[in-house]
Design a protein around this nucleic acid. Structure first.
Lengths: 243, 243
DNA sequence: TAAATAGTGTCTTTTAGACACTATCGC
DNA sequence: GCGATAGTGTCTAAAAGACACTATTTA
């Protein structure tokens, strides 16, 4: 153990520490497409650009707790499925000072997503263009509903791209698809969510067969209402069938 | 934006910051089993327990750079495939002070692993018992070669368990298996590595077929030497066949 | 030629894609 | 009954597991 390590270990106050923050990638489905919740920066630096909701981590606060607090305070959302994504630590990622940021992925059902948009937090929805470029995923770009690009602040484009990549990677073997749906849903809705995340269409019969075989869905007995045609059966996520 | 957020954003020096560290899970294959490199703690707290090599992140140092520096300085290893794993931020994970740690997964070929053990860094090898409990993976425990358990310091058992889980998850669709082998290897060696990571045996014919079909392996034309029986063909990882 | 492992062939099972078909609802 | 979508049946293709078989090398 060198002298500097000894000091760093036992008197770390003697060394300058990076600031530690969390940033939230809040994803939902909007008009059949994957979308993220962004805030427009009103101040320098990067004023006018779009940023992920974020905030600093308190000295006596867990990372998860900080993410939940930002979800409440900055996004005005009470609850969401949050999961740690990756920690971004480039030295110059924020021009003000050294900030290391732990990125979180949050998944919102369609209603919660719309509610967050309507709330007073000033959030806007960025539609994500997610081309199907193999399992690895291609580039992800954020834009308005009619296609105008939304320029992202700092390294937030990288964070967003990684979030989509992670979501895609987990789609086939975890329950992430259900986190974007209401408690009761039709198989068509579920398929649409999967298609939006993949960026490519799915075969209907094979999809339904797979969901059934995995034991992930349970019939509720109820049916859709208000359709102009044959109403579909409503299912719910069956947590017991996970493995 | 509340008053406290404003202050935290623009005068973060006014708030106490967590210390930021990296911890390295260095994995390799030893006697056909998955093993990790650990350091025995000589001081309080948790003296006598086994810990992952780690160190603090410098104020002008990338997370990846900090991990590489710890790899050199604490483990005496020049190069390894390092990949960020997860960030651990429980408030009381270190009794001395608040330390948030970014865990890294490092994969070492068998020779590099043995070399690191023989080096003067004081590293010991902990054999990992990795039972096959479905894709999710069961509990992971560290022990000596003859089965005596090695108690781990802090939350390092959690970090180790997550590292193995990640390694398992990536085994089938990335090149992690090759990172644990020398440049030239036999298909038997490759299969043994996969079996060690899975914690379950693999079908020979199916395994070879899959590796071939994916274009991951390229014949070198050379053969094993020094065997008491038919020598196997040597292959190398074919990076071009990844996707 | 015996021992031991390398490497292959083939049958079966599972999973997914393609695609047409039937069922059922509101109007 | 018509329009539109829900939901199913079945053929085919691709991938994986089981397992026996042949091949090749050293001693």
């Amino acid at each position: 153990m060198t002298e500097s390590e000894f000091l760093a270990g036992y008197d770390p106050a003697a060394y300058e520490r990076p600031a530690l923050a969390v940033d939230l990638v809040l994803l939902g489905i909007r008009a059949g497409r994957l979308a993220a919740l962004l805030l427009r920066r009103s101040r320098q630096p990067q004023a006018g650009l779009w940023a992920l909701p974020g905030g600093f981590v308190g000295i006596a606060e867990t990372l998860d707790a900080a993410a939940e607090r930002v979800l409440r305070e900055k996004a005005g959302i009470g609850r969401a499925r949050l999961e740690q994504l990756y920690t971004f630590g480039a030295v110059d990622r924020d021009p003000r000072m050294r900030i290391v940021s732990v990125a979180y992925l949050g998944l919102l059902p369609e209603a919660a997503f719309a509610e967050a948009l309507a709330g007073g937090a000033g959030l806007a929805a960025a539609t994500l263009v997610v081309p199907w470029a193999g399992e690895a995923g291609g580039p992800v770009s954020a834009g308005t509903e009619d296609g105008a690009p939304l320029p992202l602040a700092f390294d937030h484009a990288d964070i967003l791209a990684l979030a989509v990549k992670r979501l895609r990677g987990k789609l086939d073997y975890t329950d992430v698809g259900f986190a974007l749906l209401p408690e009761h849903f039709t198989l068509r809705q579920l398929q649409d969510v999967h298609a939006a995340i993949r960026g490519a269409p799915l075969n209907k019969s094979a999809f339904r067969r797979r969901m059934r075989d995995r034991g992930w869905i349970a019939p509720t007995g109820a049916r859709e209402a208000g359709t102009a045609f044959r109403p579909a059966e409503l299912f719910r996520f069956d947590r017991s069938g996970q493995f």
